[in-house]
Amino acid sequence: MILMKSESVYNSEDYDRIAQAIAFMRQHYLSQPDLATVAQHIGLSEYHFQRLFTRWAGISPKRFLQYLTIEYAKSKINQTQSLLDLTLDVGLSSPGRLHDLFINLEAMSPGEFKGGGAGLQIHYGIHDTPFGKALIATTTRGICNLHFLDAADQLTAEETLRQLWSNAEIIHDVKATQPLHDVIFDASISKDKKTLTLLVKGTNFQIQVWRALLKVPFGGMTTYQSVAEMIGRPTATRAVGTAVGNNPIGYLIPCHRVIRASGELSGYRWGLERKTAILGWEASHASCEP
């Protein structure tokens, strides 16, 4: 099932309710709350909650809950590792899926890094996405930031960018970022052969970690240890965790797909509920693909 933009999926208020429901279902997983109980918790009728959730996820809340278990996460870790071992052995990138994009990652030079974005024009906009509002910022060389926002963050979007790019010219320009938003999040747009370039600034180690994350396929999950091994630094698991947490381009550099080896999701720069929602959403859409 492919969700169409006309179904008003990209509504931050809807996402807020979805996130509340997912948090409640995770918290009370052992008692297996029924549809009526979850709906009551978020202040909707059973009918309206079922309709809202199915429109967002493409599947029922009950089935979605299956993707949030530790057992499911462990099975996906194993499947993903096998897939990565195969593709890395033969020198291929991980196979594309319906919702994947081709991503090129361009790292700034050390001089550009120190320059704080001097000479760059950064255009940004705030957009509704399936996972709440997001700040998308781009340059002529590629997307430089994608940050999910909470209500309290929206007024400080430009300030956030200025802290990251102190010497760049920052311009509010939704028209420049809307096409990027549509390619990234609109499931009605085919991703076939669409390429996005990301412009990042970071240490050599961080760049290695972020490049490794791009190999983790849509719907897959991996561990911090596996990422450390992918970059040839098997004892640097803690440093990998720090680099994952500093990812400047959410969703496109899929740091949300990195979890603990135990199957627990652990933290996320933009909130554990959002990480849970993204992983469950990806799992449900991956399961619908041929």
Rank of each mutant, 00 (worst) to 15 (best):
residue 152 A to G: 09
residue 278 I to L: 09
residue 120 L to Y: 12
residue 125 G to K: 02
residue 49 F to Q: 11
residue 63 R to C: 02
residue 21 A to V: 05
residue 100 D to C: 08
residue 208 Q to N: 09
residue 12 S to F: 08
residue 179 P to Y: 05
residue 170 I to R: 03
residue 163 Q to K: 13
residue 269 R to V: 03
residue 186 D to A: 10
residue 124 Y to A: 02
residue 124 Y to Q: 01
residue 88 L to P: 01
residue 88 L to S: 15
residue 9 V to M: 06
residue 125 G to A: 02
residue 238 R to T: 13
residue 231 I to K: 08
residue 146 L to C: 10
residue 7 E to Q: 15
residue 158 E to M: 13
residue 170 I to E: 03
residue 262 S to E: 15
residue 217 P to N: 15
residue 10 Y to M: 12
residue 284 S to F: 04
residue 56 W to G: 04
residue 244 V to F: 02
residue 12 S to C: 08
residue 113 F to S: 06
residue 56 W to N: 13
residue 191 K to M: 00
residue 199 L to P: 01
residue 175 K to G: 14
residue 113 F to G: 01
residue 228 A to H: 05
residue 12 S to G: 07
residue 11 N to C: 14
residue 101 L to F: 04
residue 77 I to L: 15
residue 131 F to Q: 08
residue 30 L to I: 09
residue 278 I to T: 11
residue 14 D to F: 14
residue 4 M to Q: 13
residue 209 V to C: 03
residue 278 I to S: 05
residue 151 A to Q: 14
residue 106 E to F: 07
residue 243 A to H: 01
residue 193 K to G: 04
residue 286 A to V: 07
residue 74 K to T: 04
residue 37 T to R: 15
residue 36 A to Q: 15
residue 74 K to G: 03
residue 141 R to S: 11
residue 113 F to H: 14
residue 128 D to L: 06
residue 113 F to C: 06
residue 147 H to G: 05
residue 152 A to I: 00
residue 288 C to F: 09
residue 43 G to S: 12
residue 230 M to G: 06
residue 81 Q to A: 10
residue 280 G to N: 06
residue 40 Q to H: 11
residue 251 Y to S: 08
residue 23 A to F: 00
residue 103 I to P: 00
residue 216 V to L: 11
residue 229 E to L: 05
residue 191 K to N: 12
residue 184 I to L: 03
residue 262 S to Q: 07
residue 132 G to F: 01
residue 157 A to M: 02
residue 3 L to W: 06
residue 50 Q to N: 10
residue 44 L to Y: 03
residue 139 T to N: 07
residue 147 H to L: 11
residue 1 M to F: 10
residue 58 G to P: 01
residue 48 H to K: 13
residue 161 L to G: 08
residue 83 L to P: 01
residue 31 S to A: 10
residue 24 F to C: 03
residue 284 S to W: 05
residue 163 Q to W: 09
residue 247 N to C: 15
residue 177 T to I: 05
residue 248 P to V: 04
residue 72 Y to I: 02
residue 136 I to A: 04
residue 183 V to K: 13
residue 81 Q to K: 12
residue 83 L to C: 10
residue 167 N to P: 00
residue 142 G to V: 05
residue 271 G to C: 00
residue 31 S to K: 13
residue 230 M to Q: 15
residue 166 S to F: 09
residue 34 D to W: 07
residue 241 G to P: 02
residue 203 T to E: 06
residue 46 E to C: 10
residue 117 G to M: 01
residue 7 E to H: 09
residue 188 S to K: 00
residue 198 L to N: 00
residue 88 L to H: 07
residue 30 L to G: 02
residue 123 H to M: 05
residue 144 C to F: 01
residue 235 T to D: 12
residue 43 G to Q: 13
residue 157 A to I: 02
residue 204 N to T: 13
residue 181 H to I: 01
